[in-house]
Design a protein around this nucleic acid. Structure first.
Length: 176
DNA sequence: CCCTGATTCGC
DNA sequence: GCGAATCAGG
């Protein structure tokens, strides 16, 4: 992929996700998942700013009416969250949770009712609204709600085998 | 340690 | 314009 500019689709997704209250990192992950891209959170942040979102606070709420000719003032985050109904904190997280593509795992795609306590709760099918959401269902990892691959997926990405130059800690045997 | 947002700066 | 590197806080 080598478009110097973000496809409108991506920007659109970015906007929606942004207004949805997601973190940049999460927005990046989801866009990457949906479009098969590889945006980093920095890319998302930079794009969001350049795109026009994330407007300085001083030009939003204050009595000063921004000289915006015709075009409605976009109210990102701060104002957006302010004037939009801010759902309970509990309801704010779920939005971010759903969706995400998956690594090379074969989900059992079992329904919620079939889902057992020890099954991975990684959601599948969040793409289409109204579509039944099924779950991975693979054996859960201890201490996590997901199976091994999904547990990692929700966390760090480069976990696979990155870690640059891990400073080889030199340890001297020095028994007191 | 993990994460987050925000800025800078080279490309 | 783009995004990695970097900074600064939680």
């Amino acid at each position: 992929m080598e478009p110097g500019h973000w496809p409108s689709e991506h920007s659109d997704a970015l906007r929606e996700h942004f207004l949805k209250g997601m973190s940049y990192a999460e927005i990046g992950r989801q866009i990457n998942a949906r479009f098969g891209t590889a945006y980093t959170r920095n890319a998302v942040i930079g794009r969001a700013k350049r795109l026009g979102l994330v407007v300085p606070e001083w030009m939003t709420s204050p009595s000063i009416v921004p000289p915006l000719p015709g075009e409605a003032l976009v109210s990102p985050r701060r104002s957006a969250l302010a004037n939009l109904n801010l759902p309970p904190k509990s309801a704010m997280k779920p939005a971010a949770r759903v969706k995400l593509r998956c690594v090379g795992v074969q989900p059992r795609l079992i329904e919620l009712v079939e889902l057992e306590a020890a099954d991975c709760r990684y959601p599948y099918g969040g793409d289409k609204d109204g579509e039944e959401i099924t779950f991975c269902g693979h054996p859960r990892q201890p201490g996590s709600s997901y199976c091994a691959p999904h547990a990692r997926l929700t966390r760090r990405s480069g976990a696979a085998s990155a870690r640059i130059a891990t400073p080889v800690a030199l340890r001297l045997v020095s028994p007191a």
